[in-house]
Amino acid sequence: MNDIRTRRPTKQRTAIEADLERYEEFRSAQEIHASLHARGDKIGLATVYRTLQAMVEEDLVDTLRTGDGEQAFRRCSTGHHHHLVCRDCGRTVEIEGPAVERWAASVSAAHGFTDVAHTLELFGRCAPCGAEG
């Protein structure tokens, strides 16, 4: 089996990477698939899912669970960070949280856990969406 860091760039993967670069918000595999088809790329939904999962494993794409439990994907910057996500329009802001990091380390140590990882997404309404409602 090939190491995931040495996967060759297929036509499908290149199209998915290009599509991810076009958007700032988190999007589902189905939304990415529809966007690719609208542009004329004939890529199966299963291929989109497999490619996105490989990209997550390679730390090239971030993923989160939306409010309804659906997995969503976004090309993000490198390094550990968190997200502030508008629940109306999907606008996403990358945030760093030193207080969260300290809290996670403290809670983990207090319970005797080591090698702890975490994710944090905050959901709210961005200013433009808040002004509309």
Rank of each mutant, 00 (worst) to 15 (best):
M1R: 07
T6F: 15
T6K: 12
R8D: 14
P9S: 12
R13G: 02
T14E: 15
A15K: 04
D19Q: 06
D19W: 11
R22S: 02
S28I: 03
S28C: 04
S28L: 04
H33R: 01
A34W: 10
A34G: 03
A34M: 03
A34T: 10
A38Y: 03
L45W: 08
L45M: 01
L45Q: 08
A46M: 12
A46Y: 09
T47K: 11
T47C: 02
Y49G: 00
T51E: 06
A54H: 11
A54S: 10
A54N: 15
A54Y: 10
M55A: 13
V61E: 04
D62Q: 06
T63I: 02
G67T: 09
G67H: 07
A72V: 12
R75Q: 12
R75A: 04
C76R: 14
S77Q: 09
S77E: 13
G79K: 06
H80C: 01
H80A: 11
H80S: 12
H82G: 04
H83Y: 10
D88K: 09
C89M: 06
G90E: 11
G90C: 04
V93K: 00
E94Q: 11
I95H: 03
E101P: 01
W103S: 12
W103D: 10
A104R: 01
A105Y: 03
S106P: 00
S108P: 06
A109Q: 10
F113Y: 06
F113W: 11
T114I: 08
A117G: 13
H118I: 08
T119M: 05
T119V: 14
F123G: 05
G124W: 01
R125F: 04
P128F: 01
C129F: 04
G130L: 14
A131K: 03
